[in-house]
Design a protein around this nucleic acid. Structure first.
Ligand SMILES: NC(=O)c1ccc[n+]([C@@H]2O[C@H](COP(=O)([O-])OP(=O)(O)OC[C@H]3O[C@@H](n4cnc5c(N)ncnc54)[C@H](O)[C@@H]3O)[C@@H](O)[C@H]2O)c1
Ligand SMILES: NC(=O)c1ccc[n+]([C@@H]2O[C@H](COP(=O)([O-])OP(=O)(O)OC[C@H]3O[C@@H](n4cnc5c(N)ncnc54)[C@H](O)[C@@H]3O)[C@@H](O)[C@H]2O)c1
Lengths: 211, 211
DNA sequence: TTTGCACTGTTAAATGAATAACAAAATGGA
DNA sequence: TCCATTTTGTTATTCATTTAACAGTGCAAA
């Protein structure tokens, strides 16, 4: 059963998350069912791709009505969520960290930002955007106590290396790095990096080429 | 010449942008040359991948010293930048929009955020984070006048559709959508979407699977 | 009832991307 | 001088992902 899910391609995992998001928005319009080509249109991919992905997770739609939206949302949840939820910590409670916390709030129930860490004394000890902000010195303590495994890195670039070390030593097993600095992690820590400059440079490149 | 570049794979374009960023950080340490395996280590990929990418853009390194960093930065610039630069507008000057502008400032010279648009009256008419903020009604006028082709979308999700329409009608040819709402664009507009929830769900999934 | 239609689910083929393999070149030391 | 070492540039191969093809199915309309 678990082994079956191991075979799900990385790209499919990414899309499943996107399907769910799109389905949630769609279901708020009062719809109960959706066809593969409708999902495809929302995400700008092909209907075949959608059906193939859903095949991989073993979900069958109704032939005439398409897919049951709430069933599908639930099934995607079974695959990508942890049954008991996972906790997330933010390192660096500046502009971006705060924006992310606000954005995140209320969107996912199995994934919760439960702690923030910052080096600045005036941020420590009280809540920012509803999240308690601790001094980084207490990282190991809090992360251990709360069993946090996932960390978001939004410190200044020159602090990235040191902060990652603290995160890893504290028990973090997955890091989402928003810093432009390349960082190092041990093999057993999953690292995902995002850089806005690369995204916009890609847009710029294809705009340029298109002319 | 231009046709040659057409063949560069999407993934390579993405990596070129990342190479440049890493190289810039690296060169600040006083280094002039770098080996493929050093670049690879920074980005957590293989040295072969790096060499293959550089082969595609026709850059040759020195056999014993590796690649000349400033030459390589320049060559990557020749490929992904526009010679005369490109201007970028931000739609939605809220928390995220402001954070992005601050982050962007001074990082790229061929790519400049030159205008912001917002619906809120108290934001219009003055500068936010150093960028002049206009009312959205003036989008077509300003974008036409300044010849802006690239737009970043950071309005609230329920405003995404309408705002994209305004952007497209104003002449925007490439959109980076930070909104969780799926949006529609004509064929001749390049659309790149980013959603932080998907990124973190991916991290969460692989953290879960790893245990 | 039967035919046509619009879907799904699945296998097969094609495309795209990453990796492996290796020849060629430069350097330093034996 | 020549050999061992190191690294590049490139072709060949493998692997991953997407797309195509198509059979099967339920429904609606004739
Ligand atoms: N990926 C993107 O698209 C993107 C966009 C904007 C910013 N960024 C990056 O995100 C990071 C944060 O950006 P920001 O605009 O929020 O900056 P910011 O200066 O507003 O916030 C940084 C925060 O980190 C705290 N901090 C500093 N050193 C620390 C340490 N050692 N440990 C813990 N906390 C520490 C500071 O007190 C501050 O609160 C920067 O690295 C920036 O380059 C990335
Ligand atoms: N992709 C991500 O990782 C990520 C992270 C955080 C937020 N977000 C999304 O980015 C968007 C902005 O987030 P935020 O935290 O900055 O929100 P925010 O409320 O701080 O900012 C929104 C801004 O848009 C302006 N606005 C509203 N309607 C507008 C319209 N029709 N035209 C122009 N401007 C308009 C508002 O006046 C406000 O200034 C939201 O959609 C949010 O969900 C995405």
């Amino acid at each position: 059963m678990e082994d079956k899910y191991k075979e799900i391609p990385h790209k499919t995992i990414e899309r499943l998350s996107q399907y769910r998001r799109a389905l949630q928005i769609y279901s708020e319009k009062g719809k109960n069912h959706i066809f593969s080509h409708e999902i495809a249109a929302l995400l700008h991919i092909t209907a075949v791709q959608v059906r193939r992905d859903l095949m991989l997770i073993g979900y069958s739609g109704s032939l005439r009505k398409g897919y049951d939206i709430s069933d599908l949302i639930m099934l995607i949840g079974n695959i990508i969520d942890s049954p008991n939820g996972q906790k997330v910590a933010v390192f660096g409670m500046g502009d971006l960290g705060t924006a992310l916390i606000n954005y995140f709030r209320g969107r996912r129930d199995k994934l919760q930002i439960t702690a923030g860490f910052d080096i600045s004394p005036e941020k420590g000890g009280h809540k920012i955007a509803g999240i308690y902000c601790y001094s980084v010195e207490r990282a190991a303590e809090i992360i251990g106590k709360e069993d946090i495994r996932i960390g978001i890195l939004t410190v200044p670039p020159d602090q990235a290396d040191d902060t990652v070390r603290i995160m890893v030593d504290s028990g973090i097993k997955g890091i989402l790095n928003y810093t432009p600095a390349p960082v190092e992690v041990p093999d057993d820590v999953y690292l995902e990096e995002y850089n806005m400059i690369s995204s916009i440079e890609k847009v710029a490149y294809y705009v340029k080429e298109q002319k």
